[in-house]
């Protein structure tokens, strides 16, 4: 496999529509303390009947940003009770799927995690879950638009062997998906083969690196 150099520098911004700009500003700026760092006031243009809109940005740390679009005169695009401002889901869609998409914001330590917990718990959007997954600890809530937001801290650094393991998992996954009719059992069997083929050599190559 060709090694491609890795030149990107994180998230510039991720963008979501909102029908509740007042709630959105209260949540991100006034409750969480995320500065407003940019906004665009745009008159609608183009071949579509595009509404006038405001595109506004909050700093989420590290100069990364979360942004919203507010479209003047646009009514909510769906009537489902489950989901968020962007997409709604009927009763046929399982809850785990509805809850799968989220934004996780990194914090440095437990103090910072608990500080955001305090800010949220004092607001109209209290923390819904706080979970220690052993290697990470996270709090979760939904913003005024229904988007799930997580704050997470690492409880220990990621080890180099976890990067190896992740790569073996993905290679095994591509193999079993490529074969058709993928199952978890097939993945674990293929991954066992990749461990036998590659894990010992990986450790030897690391031992040979300078400074180790």
């Amino acid at each position: 496999m060709t090694e491609l150099d890795h030149r990107v520098q994180g998230v510039d911004h991720t963008a979501f529509p909102t029908f509740d700009p007042a709630g959105t500003v209260r949540f991100y700026r006034d409750v969480l303390g995320f500065p407003v760092v940019h906004s665009i006031c745009a008159a609608g243009w183009g071949p579509e009947d595009h509404p006038d809109f405001i595109h506004f940005f909050f700093d989420i740390g590290n100069d990364d940003r979360i942004a919203f679009f507010y479209y003047f005169g646009l009514e909510p695009v769906h009537r489902h009770e489950r989901g968020d401002a962007y997409a709604g889901f009927g009763p046929d869609v399982p809850e785990f799927f509805v809850r799968s998409r989220h934004l996780a914001i990194h914090v440095g330590d437990e103090d910072d995690l608990l500080e955001y917990r305090r800010r949220l718990d004092a607001s109209s959007w209290p923390v819904e879950m706080q979970i220690k997954h052993e290697t990470i600890e996270s709090i979760y809530t939904h913003d005024p638009n229904g988007y799930m937001v997580e704050f997470t801290r690492a409880m220990r650094p990621v080890t180099p062997q976890e990067d190896l393991d992740a790569n073996l998992t993905i290679d095994a996954l591509l193999d079993v998906v490529g074969e058709g009719d993928p199952t978890f059992g097939k993945l674990l069997a293929r991954k066992a083969e990749l461990i036998v083929e590659r894990a010992a050599e990986w450790e030897l190559s690391r031992a040979g690196e300078p400074g180790r």
Partner: peptide, 19 residues
């Protein structure tokens, strides 16, 4: 082991074996 670790602890199971 708590559940999050327990249910994600298996990296591979050789062919000829099964969970």
């Amino acid at each position: 082991c708590r559940h999050a670790v327990w249910y994600s602890s298996v990296a591979g199971v050789a062919r000829g074996s099964r969970i």
